[in-house]
Amino acid sequence: ELREAFRLYDKEGNGYISTDVMREILAELDETLSSEDLDAMIDEIDADGSGTVDFEEFMGVMT
């Protein structure tokens, strides 16, 4: 189920989504998050600083 959700956002099928897209997902899930909260969450999610979120990083957030 998580893989299907990931595929919805990984429109190009390249195995990752951008941190911008991940930020939008988080904002949709919790509309009360401030910009600073979102920045901090993205920094934590994208631990390797690649600017992308792969499936493993995505799973870590969603579980």
Results as ranks from 00 to 15, higher is better:
32 T>R: 10
14 N>T: 09
25 I>K: 01
11 K>F: 10
56 E>M: 09
12 E>N: 07
42 I>K: 01
10 D>N: 00
1 E>Y: 14
52 T>K: 09
11 K>T: 13
41 M>F: 08
48 D>L: 06
35 S>A: 12
61 V>G: 10
46 D>N: 08
49 G>R: 12
13 G>Y: 02
50 S>E: 04
13 G>W: 02
10 D>M: 03
55 F>V: 07
28 E>D: 10
59 M>S: 11
16 Y>I: 05
16 Y>A: 04
6 F>D: 11
36 E>G: 09
10 D>R: 00
29 L>Q: 08
55 F>P: 01
45 I>F: 07
21 V>H: 11
36 E>V: 09
57 E>Y: 06
41 M>S: 02
43 D>K: 14
45 I>L: 09
51 G>H: 06
41 M>N: 00
23 R>Y: 03
33 L>E: 01
40 A>C: 11
7 R>Y: 13
15 G>H: 02
45 I>G: 02
16 Y>D: 01
57 E>H: 12
37 D>C: 12
51 G>Q: 05
47 A>I: 12
4 E>F: 05
32 T>E: 08
48 D>Q: 06
8 L>K: 15
13 G>P: 00
22 M>K: 00
32 T>M: 09
57 E>C: 09
23 R>P: 00
23 R>I: 03
58 F>Y: 09
52 T>R: 10
2 L>E: 04
30 D>T: 06
22 M>E: 00
52 T>H: 09
14 N>R: 12
45 I>P: 01
30 D>R: 09
19 T>G: 03
14 N>G: 03
25 I>S: 00
36 E>H: 09
39 D>C: 05
47 A>F: 09
35 S>F: 08
49 G>Y: 04
43 D>P: 03
18 S>L: 07
54 D>E: 07
58 F>Q: 00
33 L>Y: 07
1 E>S: 15
7 R>L: 15
35 S>E: 15
17 I>A: 00
60 G>D: 10
26 L>D: 00
8 L>H: 15
33 L>C: 04
43 D>M: 14
2 L>F: 11
52 T>I: 08
33 L>Q: 03
5 A>T: 13
46 D>Q: 03
61 V>C: 12
12 E>Q: 08
39 D>I: 06
3 R>F: 11
6 F>S: 08
58 F>H: 00
15 G>S: 02
41 M>K: 08
7 R>S: 14
19 T>S: 06
5 A>E: 08
2 L>K: 02
27 A>P: 01
33 L>F: 06
14 N>F: 10
6 F>L: 07
28 E>Y: 10
62 M>G: 04
45 I>K: 01
54 D>H: 08
55 F>E: 06
48 D>W: 05
24 E>V: 14
24 E>G: 13
57 E>D: 09
13 G>H: 05
15 G>K: 02
62 M>D: 02
9 Y>T: 02
13 G>A: 04
55 F>S: 02
5 A>L: 15
7 R>A: 15
9 Y>P: 02
27 A>I: 11
52 T>S: 07
48 D>G: 06
46 D>M: 03
32 T>S: 13
13 G>T: 02
57 E>G: 14
55 F>Q: 03
14 N>E: 04
13 G>Q: 07
8 L>E: 15
25 I>V: 07
5 A>S: 07
30 D>F: 14
26 L>C: 02
1 E>Q: 13
4 E>L: 06
59 M>D: 02
62 M>I: 09
38 L>G: 00
54 D>V: 05
2 L>H: 06
10 D>C: 12
4 E>I: 07
38 L>K: 02
41 M>C: 06
54 D>A: 09
7 R>W: 11
63 T>C: 13
36 E>P: 05
37 D>W: 08
60 G>K: 15
61 V>W: 15
41 M>I: 11
49 G>H: 11
61 V>Y: 15
18 S>M: 05
5 A>R: 15
9 Y>C: 14
61 V>I: 13
42 I>E: 01
59 M>A: 13
56 E>Q: 11
18 S>R: 07
34 S>Q: 06
26 L>W: 03
35 S>V: 11
11 K>V: 13
20 D>L: 12
41 M>A: 06
42 I>H: 01
35 S>R: 11
38 L>D: 00
11 K>D: 06
7 R>D: 15
54 D>S: 15
21 V>P: 00
16 Y>E: 03
28 E>L: 12
45 I>D: 00
25 I>H: 01
21 V>S: 11
54 D>G: 11
49 G>D: 07
40 A>G: 07
57 E>T: 14
1 E>L: 14
15 G>P: 02
38 L>C: 02
35 S>L: 10
22 M>W: 04
53 V>Y: 02
2 L>D: 04
53 V>M: 04
7 R>C: 15
53 V>P: 00
48 D>E: 07
6 F>Y: 03
44 E>K: 13
15 G>A: 01
63 T>R: 10
19 T>A: 07
33 L>P: 01
6 F>R: 08
35 S>Q: 13
62 M>T: 04
21 V>L: 14
17 I>K: 00
17 I>C: 01
25 I>E: 00
51 G>S: 04
5 A>F: 15
58 F>E: 00
27 A>F: 10
32 T>L: 08
8 L>I: 13
34 S>I: 05
50 S>A: 05
24 E>C: 15
28 E>V: 09
45 I>C: 03
14 N>H: 10
36 E>Q: 12
42 I>C: 01
51 G>M: 05
21 V>D: 12
44 E>Y: 13
60 G>L: 14
30 D>M: 12
